[in-house]
Design a binder for these strands. Structure first.
Lengths: 245, 245
DNA sequence: AACAGTTTTAAACGATTGTATTAAACGGAG
DNA sequence: CTCCGTTTAATACAATCGTTTAAAACTGTT
């Protein structure tokens, strides 16, 4: 714990802002490597090499590798979750104003769109959704704790508003439908524009292969799924006709 | 590469079957540790210690750690995918027999049920679905290659049959809906019975908290999602009334 | 009992990991 | 210029990684 909090706090750089540059370069390199290799596999040596800084720079600026991961996530997930919460509360306020219950579709869109829109934000942020999609399933406890802490307010509000939008559906049922939404979105962030899936049934990006199309598909899928009547599909495999339409 | 294929091939053990026991103990320990720690983080020392065998046993029986992961996956995913393919072909044959198109609901059930049913198969296999759910998002290339190779036949048949069950839906659209199905299922395998999510909006396991309930929820959600009309939810955010129902 | 093949053991290998240390280079203020 | 706080640099550290080696222990057969 020797040099605790050695990060610069005086902030009186003026000329080249080199310190802020180094931090940013490290964050960018770490984001890219965490996305492609995972948290554990991305070594501090690889990160510092890619960032063009010295090996010790990570410990100097962030303390340790775990704090770096937290900073990487915070940089993107902070504004992203703020946008989500703002939009969700806006939706709820709008519904209150006209004395109606919250509508499910804009809620799902408010949750998913900000994340996927990062994908076409030219800069280095484009890689974060995939990184986050990975992190959701990362076995590392460090990753899980960081993600869970940052997502908790969003999770709570989403569960509350989905519950309101789905009257008569039990809390447990709402919980699971929200999990399915998360799963579908997380999968999308990892598959979209991933060269591994090129040609695996997906020939061209298509005439409308942009992120907006993907968001529409996700919202359409999860909206119908979350509104589905439960238990309709139990034990009707043999006697009924195969299709109706 | 020194001792290539040093695995026992003569198979003339008779008394205690100790060799097969060691292999099985290693597979069980590796399965549990891969599930909880991930492929990279689960060291061969931890695996062999948990299995109660010598450190060198993994290299002796499997060659290296990567081959061990492949064996772990093969042991569960082999029979599992066989069951899936058998059921899917059965469904298709049944549809052909009556001259109709394949129905989507049994297709989704045939894909998801065998995997989730492992969760309540008392033995060590119960941990595999979560392991597989993780592996789907694992950043490690080794993991991805193994999973992709084993899943390819299932993926191909699923895409084909979902395409048949969804006439008029483009191949690209079918591809994405299948990805959403995979994502929802993968998320379910990792959340179900995970102590981390206990109390996060899910108070009790509920009176019907078994795997069958989860499967029904998944099938219900993904069936409605995959059958949803696409693009219905575009551009209706501002001018229309906040809610209609 | 002596042998041959299989399995288990203890020890060590080189490589890589995250972090700590210590000194050198930098840059504006006095 | 000199000084001082900040940043960079090279190097070393202990720990752990997957794998290899060679000898010991065990097995059933002759």
């Amino acid at each position: 714990m020797g040099r605790q909090a050695a990060a610069p706090e005086s902030r009186k750089l003026s000329a080249g802002e080199t310190a802020e540059d180094a931090r940013t370069h490290i964050l960018d390199a770490a984001e890219a490597l965490f996305e492609n290799e995972g948290y554990r596999a991305a070594s501090v040596r690889a990160i510092t090499a890619k960032a063009g800084v010295n090996l010790a720079a990570i410990n100097y600026y962030f303390g340790n590798k775990e704090a770096l991961l937290e900073a990487v996530c915070q940089r993107r997930l902070g504004p992203l979750n703020e946008a989500r919460l703002r939009k969700l509360k806006e939706i709820r306020a709008g519904a209150r104003r006209v004395g109606r219950k919250v509508e499910l579709q804009p809620v799902l869109r408010a949750f998913m769109a900000p994340a996927l829109l990062l994908k076409e934000s030219g800069g280095s942020a484009a890689g974060f959704p995939a990184l986050f999609g990975r992190a959701l399933a990362d076995p590392d406890d460090t990753v899980q704790r960081i993600i869970f802490k940052m997502m908790k307010p969003v999770h709570q509000l989403m569960l509350e508003m989905m519950g309101e939008a789905l009257p008569g559906v039990s809390r447990e049922e709402v919980f699971w439908r929200y999990q399915f939404v998360i799963g579908a979105m997380a999968r999308a962030t990892r598959v979209y524009k991933n060269p591994r899936f090129r040609g695996a049934g997906l020939e061209d990006p298509g005439p409308e292969g942009g992120v907006n199309t993907l968001i529409d598909r996700l919202v359409s899928f999860t909206l119908a799924g979350a509104q589905a009547a439960p238990g309709m599909n139990i034990k009707c495999k043999k006697n009924s006709a195969p299709e109706s339409i």
